Simulated assay, not measured.
Amino acid sequence: MKKNKPLIFTKKKNKLLLFTKILYSICIIWTIISFIIIYSNINNNISSKLVIGYGLFIFFMLLYIPIITLFNARKLKWNSLKRILKKFISLFITFFIVNCAFDYIFRSYNIDVFNSFYHALGLSFGLAFMDVIFFKKENN
């Protein structure tokens, strides 16, 4: 049996991993603050700028996550990438079918296939490629 060796990070990979973790932490904290501002109905200049800044930050994160995933995925071996892609496809199909089924059961008059498609795509991408985004383990 082969034992997985720990991944030895170079300074560049270590900085990129730290930067990604910091961005995720900022995103979680900023989301909580924005929800508090919105649900408390705070209307002043600072809070509106904070919520607008949060929207721009989320737009940046929507661009950053796929780019960093592709950047890290190109370093994977083909067997690992194939396993992750199979997981992505199976999760996508499962989420899409479940979402359409719930739409049919609870809102049979209004089944939105595009909405189900985008929800399934986002969930399956996030779950399948989470280890690639943070690049925690070595895939042999």
Rank of each mutant, 00 (worst) to 15 (best):
A73Q: 03
F135D: 02
A128G: 01
K136C: 03
Y39T: 14
L23P: 00
V113A: 05
I28D: 06
G53F: 05
V51Q: 04
T69F: 01
L18T: 14
K87P: 00
F117E: 02
F35R: 11
K2E: 12
N41P: 02
F35W: 12
I84N: 02
K75T: 11
V51P: 00
S47R: 04
Y24F: 14
K136E: 08
M130W: 11
N45R: 13
A120S: 11
F114V: 11
F59Y: 10
I89T: 15
N4I: 15
V51M: 04
Y39P: 02
S116M: 06
M130F: 13
S25Y: 09
D131T: 09
S47H: 07
F106S: 04
Y118V: 12
K5R: 15
S25K: 09
Y24S: 12
F57Q: 03
I28N: 06
N99H: 09
D103F: 06
K136I: 09
Y64D: 04
F19D: 12
I29H: 03
I26K: 07
H119Q: 14
P66H: 07
S116P: 01
I67V: 13
N72Y: 02
L70F: 15
Y109T: 12
L85V: 12
K82W: 04
I26W: 06
S90F: 08
L91S: 03
I105G: 02
F57G: 01
E138T: 09
L76F: 05
R107Y: 15
D112T: 08
N99Q: 10
W30E: 04
N14K: 15
N140F: 11
L85K: 11
M130L: 13
K77F: 05
L17T: 13
I33T: 07
N110D: 12
I37Q: 01
L127P: 00
T69V: 14
F125Y: 07
L63M: 13
L63K: 14
I68L: 09
L23K: 05
I42R: 10
K5I: 11
N41V: 09
I133S: 00
F9G: 01
L23M: 13
I97D: 03
F125E: 00
Y109L: 08
S80E: 10
I68R: 03
I26A: 08
N41H: 14
N44K: 07
I46D: 03
S47E: 06
G53W: 03
Y39F: 15
K75C: 03
N110I: 05
F106H: 08
I8H: 13
T94M: 10
I97N: 04
S25V: 10
L7E: 07
L63C: 14
N140R: 15
Y24K: 10
D103I: 04
F106Q: 06
I93E: 05
R107A: 06
F117L: 11
R83A: 08
I58S: 07
S48V: 09
S47D: 06
G53L: 04
N43A: 09
F129G: 00
I133T: 01
G126F: 02
S80C: 10
V132W: 00
I42C: 04
P6Y: 10
K75N: 12
I89Y: 10
C100Q: 11
N4G: 08
F96T: 01
D131P: 02
I37C: 00
F60M: 05
K87A: 05
